[in-house]
Amino acid sequence: MKTSLFRNTLMAALIAQAFTFAHTAAAADKIIKIDGSSTVYPITEAVAEEFQRAKGVKVTVGESGTGGGFKKFCRGETDISDASRPISQKEMDACKEGGVQFIELPIAYDALTVVVNGKNDWVKQITVAELKKIWEPGSKVKNWKEVNATYPDKPLNLYGPGTASGTFDYFTEAVNGKAKASRTDYTPSEDDNVLVQGVSGNTGGLAYFGLAYYLENTDKLKAVPIVAKEGAKPVLPSEATVMDGTYQPLSRPLFIYVNATAAAFRPEVKAFVNYYLENAPELVKEVKYVPLPKADYTAVKEHFKAMKPGTGFNGTSEVGIKITDLLSRIK
């Protein structure tokens, strides 16, 4: 008994001593720190895995969400921030205050997919106007009949991401015309698998989420072709329709924000970003997202090489923007 108590005290003393060690150690190692959006996470994880295997540089990736990621990024705690939406004005101010300059790099597309139950045989397409009627703030639509008079008399059950999600922001912007403006009487979940389960267990269900979650559940769910404007052709989300720009307005670019100082002065960070852009076409596809067209990756690479800091957005996201236009805005 005596010895074990002695051992405990000794260890407590060692721990206390360790507090002093804790700091000095962190600065020395070359770890690339990444945090941010959980939507972009699978892509960055894939790149980090391969890069670490190939170059032996340590990379860590967190998923605090786009907002949480920017908080750390603007305090200079991370080297790269994953983002499923452009940086906001508030976050730009925070970065300025923290003395962090960033390089904005689009790295892939995500197609927000509107899905219905696999047994739903009446919806062949949906117009953005119909989506708006369903999802706009204060909407009272509770039955498929109210969406379109030709649809059967079936209750409409809505599922969607929570309000903290970038998917929610983009969808509401694209459909309702204002980010975060949405009806609130739907079943929200931050976990897309819960939305998948909701719709697959409910014949009258409808939800929206990233394409990857639909592609893994095609046996239970049906994607609805989107009609962008009156008279336009209905378009199903797919790699081809997103890449050629016809899947509108629900395809959105995903970004990484690179700390400009880290990119300029730390060769491993620069090497990582180059590796990211070089291997994105295959790796993005592998994790079921849509890569940018080849020419766009070349443009993004040039942009990174030129080390142009700043954003092409005004602190808000835009629907249907071209990557090349975006890059050319940053001088």
Binding site: F21, V61, G62
Partner: peptide, 27 residues
């Protein structure tokens, strides 16, 4: 702020050289 992807281990707490204990893993 725990990480999600981390494909390396923290430095070992025990080393082969004196003082045989290493506290880098704590940080």
């Amino acid at each position: 702020g725990a990480l999600t992807f981390i494909a390396f281990l923290p430095p070992s707490p025990i080393t082969t050289e004196p003082p045989f204990l290493n506290f880098e893993w704590l940080s």
